[in-house]
Simulated scan of single mutants.
Amino acid sequence: MNQVLAGSVLSALSTGLGAVPILFMAKSLTHRWRDVLLAFSAGIMMAASMMSLIPESLKSGGFSTLTVGLSAGVLILTLLEMTVPHIDLEHTKSGLQFDEKAMLIIAAITLHNLPEGLSVGVSYASDSSSQIGNLIALAIGLQNAPEGFLVALFLINQQIGRFKAFVIATLTGAVEIVTSLLGFYLTSLFRGLVPYGLAFAAGAMLFIIYKELIPESHGDGNERTSTYAFIVGILFMIFLTQSF
């Protein structure tokens, strides 16, 4: 229990850690660097899904279980996207008002973080909890850091104070702690749900990668640079997997 709590807190609060630089930045980040951060995050999540979540689900449940769980993850993310309109953080040029634009962004990012928290909790409930749980918590944390930075940067561009933007960005990630503990308890009580939960987490992460992170990283003509960053993110996560 202490391990899942620590892992979920660290991965969730990485959102706030990533937002720290905006308190000291003198100017905004270029689109190229934003795209690099997004693509690097996508690579990290891709490696975590393909090398940890999916193999573990196959090992403990088989292909049919993987298919059902992964499809459920994609379906839930699809329904979330249809319920909460998606607004692009990176490529919006118009200056919309905070109460309309920013609140919708905050709601969308918060809901987007819910399945990530579930991914961490379910991973700790698996038979290889000490390994796969820490690995997924690390992967989600590494992905949350640039996300927190970009959310805070967006809020600053909407004339929100730096400290307030930092606090809001941190809170959008904090919801992962709740869903992480929920995922852990559910799969611990019903052990048969573990392989489904791992596959669900993989499906949710793959949806986020392909539907959100990759398109956003290619929106300003930085496709080649973003592709390199994506590959570096994959290699970085593989290195961590092999090392630890």
Rank of each mutant, 00 (worst) to 15 (best):
H112M: 10
I136T: 08
I168C: 02
I136S: 09
L79H: 07
D127F: 01
L114D: 02
A152G: 12
I177P: 11
L111W: 07
G121P: 06
I105Y: 08
L75T: 13
L80F: 15
L96S: 14
T170A: 10
M82V: 10
L75F: 14
I156L: 13
G117A: 01
I160D: 02
V175M: 01
T110K: 00
F149H: 06
L135Y: 11
E90V: 13
A169C: 06
A165V: 04
V74K: 04
A169S: 15
L138K: 04
I109K: 00
Q159V: 05
V74Y: 09
A125K: 11
E81L: 09
F166A: 07
F166S: 09
E90N: 13
F149Q: 06
T172A: 05
I168K: 03
F149M: 14
S94N: 10
A137W: 02
S119N: 06
G173L: 04
A102Q: 06
K93C: 03
G133F: 07
E147C: 00
G141T: 05
I132R: 06
D88H: 14
V120A: 08
D88N: 15
L171W: 01
V84Q: 10
F149N: 07
S126H: 07
L80N: 12
L150E: 00
L104P: 04
E100N: 12
L114R: 01
L111G: 14
G141L: 03
T78H: 10
F154M: 13
K93R: 13
S129T: 04
M103I: 05
L135C: 00
G173Y: 04
H86A: 15
Q143A: 11
E100A: 11
E176R: 00
P85F: 09
G95I: 05
I140Y: 10
A137D: 07
I177A: 06
H112W: 06
M103N: 09
H112Y: 08
T172H: 04
F154E: 11
I177E: 06
K164S: 13
G161H: 07
P85S: 14
G73Y: 10
G161N: 13
E90S: 12
A165S: 15
F149K: 07
E147W: 01
T78V: 03
D88E: 15
I76C: 14
R162Y: 05
H91V: 09
Q97A: 14
L138Y: 05
N157K: 14
F149Y: 15
V175G: 00
T83F: 10
G95K: 14
N113S: 01
P115D: 09
L114I: 14
F149D: 05
V122A: 15
L118N: 08
Q159Y: 10
K101E: 15
G173T: 04
S123N: 10
M103A: 03
G121L: 02
H86D: 13
S71W: 02
L118K: 03
I136H: 07
E90M: 13
T110G: 01
I160A: 09
G173C: 09
I140F: 07
D127Q: 11
A108S: 15
N144H: 02
A152P: 07
N157R: 15
D88A: 15
L114A: 08
K101W: 10
V122M: 14
L77G: 01
A152M: 03
L77R: 09
E176C: 00
A174G: 06
L118G: 04
T110H: 01
Q131W: 00
D99G: 00
P115V: 06
L142H: 07
A139W: 08
A165Y: 05
S129F: 13
D99F: 04
I76D: 07
G148V: 10
S128L: 08
